[in-house]
Design a protein around this nucleic acid. Sequence first.
DNA 1: GGGAATAAGTGTTTAAATTACTCTTTTGTA
DNA 2: TACAAAAGAGTAATTTAAACACTTATTCCC
Lengths: 230, 230
Amino acid sequence: MVLSSYKNEDKVLLALDCIIFGFDQEELKILLVKRDFEPEKGKWSLIGGFLKKEENLDEAATRILRYLTGLNNIYMEQLYTFSKVDRDPAERTISVAYYALIDIATHDKALLKQNPVQWFSLKEAPTLIFDHHLMVEKAISRLRRRALTKPIGFELLPPKFTMRQLQKLYEAILDKKLDKRNFINKFNSLDILIKLNEKDMSSSKKGAFLFKFDEEKYRRKVEDGFIFKI
Amino acid sequence: MVLSSYKNEDKVLLALDCIIFGFDQEELKILLVKRDFEPEKGKWSLIGGFLKKEENLDEAATRILRYLTGLNNIYMEQLYTFSKVDRDPAERTISVAYYALIDIATHDKALLKQNPVQWFSLKEAPTLIFDHHLMVEKAISRLRRRALTKPIGFELLPPKFTMRQLQKLYEAILDKKLDKRNFINKFNSLDILIKLNEKDMSSSKKGAFLFKFDEEKYRRKVEDGFIFKI
DNA sequence: GGGAATAAGTGTTTAAATTACTCTTTTGTA
DNA sequence: TACAAAAGAGTAATTTAAACACTTATTCCC
């Protein structure tokens, strides 16, 4: 059985579901869609789709996300494959979960065109169909760990951001308050940010300097054995 | 397409492949099988099989492993799902990789009955079929990270082991030398080992005390917020 | 124009964790 | 009985993490 040819094996439907994280300067959000077909029509769900014969999973996830947001170049990562026998009551499907990170401010216009999708704060998200809550839970815990060892947080911010925004993002991801001075000292010691000669005046009278992530410098440091660890 | 019913979607073959790690008191090994069917008949491969309609992936991985080793209660964890379109030249298959940890000494007899399987040291393993080398690579890096934050190493040791054996295991997993005193101090401070009133006399004249992992104590500590970190 | 309000920006001290490091003990075997 | 072979045990130095509070710049309002 295990060691035999595979002519007579069962085939299955392979779905993909995307946990799309966004950040709005205050809290982490996820993008959900109101399902417009059975089963579970009218309920909130992760964005999903099915794998096609001619594509691999990363490509399928990208296609599904682009179909929804109209955007390429989104950070995505495969999360886990969910396979409970009756997870979808309509038909046996296995679902590979991906998570994506996008900056809400930059991408909101494209999304707003799509009627049935909506951002929900993590803490106020509605009940989801199937096992989607498990997927979200696992995605949060992966994001939390990943944010400490890879600079993926920048995917959730605009290209230029203040230190305050960066700190608030990490506080949202880790769900705990951080000390301002320690945070800034730590990040400065990593030496992967470029301080711009520009201030953001929207949040204070003094104005806060804008920074951007120095992707090239980061890459070079990694090549030299540097490990990002906040 | 994404938001439509799923009557007409493509179905695929869903395979599983298991990276089985073992430890023989000196180095990390993986268990491979000589493939006895086409394609790639006669070449070395990970242990694999296909998902059946009535089981989920964890169950399938357990079944496949039991079929091979005759054993239950093996530590297994889902690793990643591989989906390159032409990864299997015979037919489009998606493969979910699992990795398992077993103590070679305890389980070797059962394995020896199975002719086509063989242990290979990681550094001397033969070329593998398909994308199995990617699976192994990813499994090693997962194991390496996991071993630092979960006491999974004990799965690779006999129930009773010496401090020396434990250290050698960690050295094998992390692929670097560790300082004997620091290692022992660190582990003692975790306070999850039971020192037995028994010595292993096989490796020295003085004899080395045997220890065992206190699973119950570990569980209780975790409940109190303890995080294993070596 | 002066003062109040608001958030930005900045270092030091203390505690904790990690690393580096070597000699003595035990006991079986020659 | 002495030699070989691995076990066992503690301290000092360094690095990293955590706690902590005041000054500065600017706008807005009076």
